[in-house]
Structures are given as structure tokens and as C-alpha cells.
């Protein structure tokens, strides 16, 4: 499988070239109409005027972005000051997503490394064990976290029984609760790409360094880590991006005071109190943030590949 990607299909790699327009047509139509066009439409909506029953009036307006960044008082005629409420929600989301990425990395890297250094037949079983939670419904996983972390839940029972705490810890409805939820949700997303990268790593490089009397921790930081950096970046993207826009963990494990971007956006489309242009604008800002992160990381990735080749 490994060598196939490079050498495979050369003899007939053009076999379907004459039909490729027809072969790609269903993909273009479905994804173009149902995903790409709606995103463009959302960009347009973010510049429209809000209608009070939810929905929009087709009149150009920058009100949504103005409301996001500036506070003009209750009647909208005060001198504009910076509106921190929404920026704070975005900042909290970035911070939570960054922390979740770091924690996933701290436990995910050793796990991936351990699995990759097992004999081949054991490796598939370890990977299988990581894959199962990856496939289990995210909602169910978040609900079970809520069940565990409750004030009268099993975790607090255990902590009180062992005498670590006297009173039950309140974790639900705190930032800590959201953080645990994000970490738990996306941990397998970190382990799998890291494992794929470390498994491809050629351990004879480590052998060579060891023969030259490099200590083991230096081999890890100076040789293994740089070699598996693409996997590292992929894992970080797969944890950071969904954490940033996550809805379930903040909604079920956080409360109104631990709002993240996902809940803010969701609120704009629920019932008549919503503000569609504002929701569209917040979505555009989130999308821009994600694209910026992806671009920075993709450039790094490209530089790595150039360095390797």
C-alpha cells in the first residue's frame, strides 16, 4: 500500500481521461450546489438587513459586522466603543481549542509512539482499539461525559469515596467541563494521524543516532519529532478546527457563561429572537479564522516537503 501511491496506476493512469468530465459531474453538481453555493450565499446574507421574525430583508447593510465589533449603546446613537462581548467569546473559543490541542498532543503523541513501536501484528489491534471511540457517535460520547462529570456522578463519587475531596466538585457548567469535553471528543483525531506518521518513520535513523551515542531523549526531539512533523500538523488541525467551532461540548458541558462560537451562531437561528445576518457574519469570521490557520499550516507543510525533497 505504501509504495502504491507513488508507483501505482502509471500504465493506465490516463485510462479514464476521456470520460473525466462525466465522471466528475455528479461531484461538481452536488458539492457545488449544496455546499459551495450556500457558503457564498451565507457571505451575501452577512451583508443584508435583519428581519425581526428571523430571516433577512434584501438590503445591503454592514450592521451585522458592526454589531459584532462595536457597541453603539441601547438605541444605536452613542459614540461607538469596542464591543468586547463577542470578541471575548471568540477569544475563549480559540483559547479552549488551543488547550485541547495541547492536551491531546501530550497524551496522543506517547500513545501513537508506543503503538508504532509494537510488533506489526499487535499494532493493528492497538489501532483498532483507538478507532472504536473515533467511530462512536460524538453526541453519545459527550452525553456520557456529562453523566460522569455531574455533581452526583461517578467521578465525584469516586473522589469523595477516596477522600480526595470532601464536597462534590462542580465541573459541569464550567470552562473546565468544556475543556474536558473537547479533549475527550477529539483525542482519537490526534492519535490516528500521528500514528500513521510514526509508523512510516524509519527507525534505522534512530539506530544510527544511537550508534553515535545520542541519548534517547535527544533522538526523540532531534530526529523523530522533525521527521513526523507532517503527522503532527495533521493531528493538530484535526483537533483544533473542530474544537474551535464545536457545539456539543460547550452546550452540554458548559453553560451560558462558557459560551463558545458554536453556541453563539446556533442561537441566531433558533426561534424568532435570532438574527440571521449576525449569525452569517459570525460564521464568516469563524470560517476566515479557520482558513487562516489552515493556510499557515499548509505553508509549513509545503516548506517541509520542499526541505525533504
Amino acid at each position: 500500500m505504501a509504495g502504491g501511491a507513488a508507483s501505482g496506476g502509471n500504465a493506465t493512469s490516463e485510462a479514464y481521461a476521456p470520460a473525466r468530465g462525466w465522471l466528475l459531474l455528479p461531484t461538481w453538481v452536488v458539492l457545488g450546489i449544496v455546499v459551495l453555493a450556500p457558503i457564498v450565499l451565507m457571505l451575501i446574507y452577512s451583508f443584508l438587513t435583519k428581519e425581526f421574525r428571523g430571516g433577512v430583508i434584501w438590503e445591503f447593510s454592514v450592521d451585522a459586522y458592526d454589531q459584532f465589533f462595536f457597541d453603539r449603546g441601547l438605541f444605536g446613537d452613542d459614540a461607538p466603543t469596542i464591543q468586547w462581548a463577542y470578541i471575548q467569546i471568540f477569544w475563549r473559543s480559540i483559547w479552549q481549542a488551543t488547550l485541547a490541542t495541547i492536551f491531546c498532543l501530550l497524551i496522543g503523541f506517547p500513545t501513537a509512539y508506543f503503538i508504532a513501536t509494537r510488533p506489526a501484528n499487535q499494532r493493528t489491534i492497538w489501532v483498532f482499539l483507538i478507532t472504536i471511540p473515533y467511530w462512536v457517535n460524538l453526541l453519545i460520547r459527550t452525553v456520557s461525559m456529562r453523566f460522569i462529570l455531574r455533581d452526583q456522578g461517578p467521578l465525584n463519587d469516586l473522589l469523595q469515596w477516596t477522600g480526595i475531596v470532601a464536597e462534590p466538585l462542580t465541573i459541569i457548567n464550567t470552562n473546565l467541563g468544556v475543556q474536558i469535553g473537547l479533549f475527550y471528543s477529539y483525542l482519537p483525531f490526534m492519535v490516528l494521524p500521528l500514528y500513521a506518521a510514526i509508523e512510516r518513520y524509519n527507525f534505522s535513523l534512530s539506530e544510527a543516532a544511537s550508534d553515535l551515542y545520542a541519548p534517547r531523549h535527544k533522538i526523540l526531539t532531534r530526529i523523530v519529532l522533525p521527521a513526523v512533523k507532517p503527522g503532527l500538523i495533521a493531528g493538530c488541525i484535526l483537533v483544533f478546527v473542530p474544537s474551535l467551532g464545536s457545539f456539543l461540548a460547550p452546550d452540554l458541558l458548559g453553560g451560558a457563561r462558557n459560551f463558545m462560537i458554536g453556541s453563539l451562531i446556533d442561537e441566531q437561528f433558533r426561534g424568532s429572537a435570532g438574527n440571521w445576518p449576525f449569525g452569517a457574519a459570525a460564521s464568516m469570521i469563524l470560517l476566515t479564522l479557520v482558513l487562516l490557520v489552515l493556510m499557515v499550516l499548509a505553508r509549513q507543510q509545503a516548506r517541509l516537503e520542499k526541505g525533504a525533497g
Binding site: 450565499l41 451565507m42 474551535l244 451562531i265 449569525g279
Partner: peptide
Amino acid sequence: TFGLISLPILVPEIVTAVAMLIFFN
């Protein structure tokens, strides 16, 4: 085309959700 195929994975799910709601509406 590859970018188009990757779009649902790259774009945060809540953004896709909002876009689709607006589209159907």
C-alpha cells in the same frame, strides 16, 4: 476539484450547517 471534495471536511460543521439552512430557506 480536490478542494471542492475536501470542503465539507475543512469547513467547521456549524458553518456548513448555517450555509445549508440559508440555502434551503
